[in-house]
Simulated assay, not measured.
Amino acid sequence: MKLCKAPDPHPTTPAYRMPPGACDAHCHVFGPADVFPYADDRAYTPPDAPFEALQALHRHLGISRAVIVHASCHGTDMAVTLDGIARSGGTMRGVAVVDGDITAGELARLHDGGMRGVRFNFVRHLGGMPDLAVMDRVLALIEPLGWHVVLHLDAQDVADLAPRIDRIRIPFVIDHMGRVQAKLGTDQAPFRALLGLMENPLAWVKICGAERVSVGRAPFEDAIPFAQKLLAVAPDRCLWGTDWPHPNISQDMPNDGALVDLFARFTDDEAVRHQVLVDNPTRLYWPETLG
């Protein structure tokens, strides 16, 4: 079983100052394992990265809100994510991972606990294609709740999955710029397919995970052109997050302060930055706060 590296314990102080209400729309909480055990069938084992450490990082970076994306190492036991949301005082929401036999009643409980979406993993090294019949059933159940679905996939699979994705009737969010490979350039077919997918008004994308898009060497500047093109296509449907504590990083571990400054290089338009960091996550995760 793969053992993950720990995150950089010394994040720099970003030069870019986050606007009030800025949201880390993709982060995780791991453990502590003696309180929230890891799943027996997990594909990797992370070091503990508890809620208190996430809060401390956000205070350091100037981040006001967050979305905890439940990670596969905790299986479908949502306790660790629900605990973090409950302790956040309303400043955090969550994305769940669920079993195929989930009931409407259980989803309602998760909604009350702050969950606003469900995630399906298509990434090959994390298990690959999910049961699409299960996905159909779950999406039908979450539609009345106003939830969205997060799709964790590899860009080279976007074209093959496009007919299936086109059938989705609720907002869907593509993780980590589709994990496109920066070394192949912005004209590569998988990235063109992702840009084409973003023409769908239900499609959202996270312009984060630069360390997963890059060739793997900090400061991951080769990811910048991809984020810029996605922003140009759909600035009102882009989200950003740290991906802390960065599970399954095989090369350079990112510094979270440096990632904030990298985000600021995606666009010099402060209105667009505000849209990505504040307005867009509010629409998707805190719609009840809008007029």
Rank of each mutant, 00 (worst) to 15 (best):
E143Q: 15
D268A: 13
G105E: 14
Q181Y: 07
Y285Q: 10
R116A: 10
N121V: 13
G196D: 14
A218N: 02
Y285H: 13
V149T: 14
T76Y: 10
V149P: 02
T242I: 10
A210D: 13
R237E: 04
N200L: 11
A264K: 04
G128K: 12
M253T: 14
D236G: 09
G127R: 02
D40Y: 10
D166W: 11
G113E: 07
L259V: 06
V260C: 09
A96E: 11
H10A: 15
V118K: 01
T12C: 10
A33H: 10
V97W: 00
H10W: 03
G21E: 10
P47N: 12
E52N: 01
G62C: 11
A6F: 02
R164V: 15
L126V: 04
V67A: 02
K183I: 14
M78L: 14
D48M: 11
A79Y: 03
R137L: 00
L195N: 02
C208K: 08
R283Y: 01
L153H: 03
S64H: 13
E199A: 15
L3H: 14
Q228S: 04
C73D: 08
G117E: 11
D112A: 15
T186P: 11
F30S: 07
D112M: 08
P190T: 04
M1Q: 05
D154V: 03
A86G: 12
P46M: 11
L61F: 11
L61Y: 04
R93D: 05
K5F: 02
L195P: 10
